[in-house]
């Protein structure tokens, strides 16, 4: 037992700051990716619903195209997608290494994922409330903004939480090609140098991050749900 503790004390001066910065890098990557995912995934999900042939703005051709694009994004394994978009990453961030560069593939991987969750949440909203709003003379944009999105809010938040959790796991993978963060530490120290202290420390921190995100999400969902 004491041997275990001695090992930790001996490593701590270097490992402590590493873990601290690694955690911050992970939060930085996940935070910005979540922002871009919501920014693009939400409208994409809305369009997937409204362009449906029985939707508010039927446009089957547009829907088929969007759906195909989303499916392509969903079918690529993240590690492959990351490599596939390297040139876009360089174009947008000027580099392919580090947490900032990782935001590009992370967002691109999560946008279609979240768009599908948005689509599912919006489809849960009853046809009759949309009818009712239409019968009141509401414009379509108003129906989206004041009926569809507020009614689906619990589902939209739950979906975003799921997306964030997925992003945490993706971000660890991003470490494999130099994205930084906790995944990077786990691979460089835990895997390549066989240092179990790093391996377990990063595992514990990743679990903690996911737990916190999920708990905060659950509280939010409960607060906005009035069903």
């Amino acid at each position: 037992m004491t041997g275990w503790l001695d090992g930790l004390v001996e490593r701590w001066p270097q490992m402590g700051p590493n873990l601290w910065w690694g955690t911050l890098d992970t939060l930085y990557m996940v935070g910005w990716s979540t922002f871009f995912t919501a920014l693009f995934g939400l409208p994409l999900g809305v369009l997937l619903v409204t362009t449906d042939e029985r939707g508010l703005t039927p446009a089957p051709a547009v829907r088929a195209l969007l759906s195909a694009v989303v499916n392509v994004g969903r079918s690529l394994p993240f590690i492959v997608l990351m490599v596939a978009v390297l040139s876009l990453t360089r174009l947008l961030t000027g580099t392919t290494l580090g947490p900032t560069a990782a935001i590009v593939p992370l967002s691109i991987g999560a946008i279609p994922f979240y768009a599908r969750l948005v689509e599912t949440a919006l489809r849960e909203v009853g046809r009759d409330v949309v009818d009712a709003a239409q019968a009141m003379g509401a414009r379509r944009i108003v129906i989206v903004g004041k009926v569809l999105l507020p009614e689906a809010l619990p589902g939209l938040i739950a979906g975003l939480v799921m997306t964030v959790v997925t992003l945490v796991s993706y971000s660890a993978m991003a470490g494999a090609i130099g994205g930084g963060g906790l995944g990077d530490l786990a691979i460089r120290y835990g895997y390549q140098r066989f240092d179990d202290y790093y391996l377990w420390a990063t595992v514990i921190l990743l679990v903690l991050v996911v737990q916190v995100v999920q708990s905060v999400g659950d509280v939010l969902v409960r607060r906005v749900s009035h069903r």
């Binding site: 409330v129 009712a132 239409q134 019968a135 003379g137 507020p150 009614e151």
Partner: peptide, 19 residues
């Protein structure tokens, strides 16, 4: 849309906004 405001409607399953 303006004319619809002069026509109220009530529904079998109420169609209220749960939010």
């Amino acid at each position: 849309r303006a004319a619809r405001r002069g026509i109220g409607m009530i529904h079998q399953h109420f169609a209220l906004l749960s939010s």
